[in-house]
Design a protein around this nucleic acid. Structure first.
Length: 262
DNA sequence: AAAGCTCTCAACCGCGCACCT
DNA sequence: GAGGTGCGCGGTTGAGAGCTT
């Protein structure tokens, strides 16, 4: 079976875009808007694949792009968001107006990784490099399982080992503003008893990150069609210390990358 | 001056997901 | 439910600019 190729490779240009190609693409999108990337190249008279056009527009030609160096504030925000989201570059980019996922990904790999390494922080785990990765740390595994009836998400959490308060304090001292305290919401059954209005007011994950109108948004704030937030995740986030999944009271540290989707 | 090396980042590739038929 | 299509994402590549010797 297999997937059909996204374009006829024999008749498409590859490599760097010429000024003329850029101008054609800009003119076409200005006249017809974004979308229908597959048919766009032919309509615009470009010998490019649709994916290539989309990428060129999103990463380079879009008028709202902020070109130039990243500020220190942007650096720190990227680090914080990466510590929470992992390599979810598109989500991270959503918090940085004018920056693209590709740009942030490149910047991370070329600059920030090195910056963190020079600080003695593992850029993957965001933990001090001297600290063992397993054994002494507290690992929380969360699995999301959609309920057939109401699409609610069950969350299970298992603690593997507890971290001593001294170790916890030490990390806080080394990374004073890297506050990743998290919280788990009440169990599924208890959650059913929550007041409906209270649930309607909670934000989904993407809205909690400030990415309103995202396609990932599933909460009631997105539309008025009656779709409540299907996630029972209630996350209050600010940079100085958000409360994800309700773990705050227990002082747990949760690594986004351990989240397991079922 | 030039050869070799390193770094940067635009672009490509393959895959997964959502939607449609 | 299966297959086809389109889009978006994350990982990777490679050309060219910059730096070092």
């Amino acid at each position: 079976m297999g997937r059909s190729p996204c374009c006829e490779k024999a008749h498409t240009n590859k490599g760097a875009w010429t000024k003329e190609e850029d101008e054609r693409l800009i003119a076409y999108i200005k006249a017809h808007g974004e979308g229908c990337w597959r048919s766009l190249p032919k309509a615009a008279g470009l010998l490019r694949c649709g994916k290539s056009c989309r990428l060129r527009w999103i990463n380079y030609l879009r008028p709202d792009l902020k070109r130039g160096n990243f500020t220190d504030e942007e650096d720190e925000l990227i680090i914080k968001l990466h510590s929470l989201l992992g390599n979810k570059w598109s989500l991270i980019a959503g918090r940085l107006p004018g920056r693209t996922d590709n740009e942030i990904k490149n910047y991370w790999n070329t600059h920030i990784r090195r910056k963190l390494l020079s600080r003695g922080i593992d850029p993957t785990t965001h933990r001090p490099m001297s600290e063992p990765t397993l054994g002494t740390q507290k690992v929380t595994t969360i699995s999301f399982a959609a309920d057939d009836q109401d699409q609610k998400i069950k969350i299970k959490s298992e603690l593997i080992e507890t971290m001593s308060k001294e170790e916890d304090h030490e990390i806080q001292e080394r990374c004073p503003d890297l506050n990743l305290e998290l919280r788990i919401s009440p169990p599924h059954d208890q959650q059913n008893q929550l007041d409906h209005n209270q649930r309607a007011n909670s934000l989904c994950f993407t809205c909690s990150l400030g990415i309103q109108n995202s396609k990932d948004c599933s909460c009631s704030t997105k539309s008025s069609n009656g779709n409540g937030c299907s996630n029972i995740i209630s996350m209050n986030m600010n940079i100085s210390g958000y409360d994800f999944l309700g773990l705050k009271n227990n002082g747990l540290v949760l690594d986004y990358r351990t989240l397991e989707t079922k």
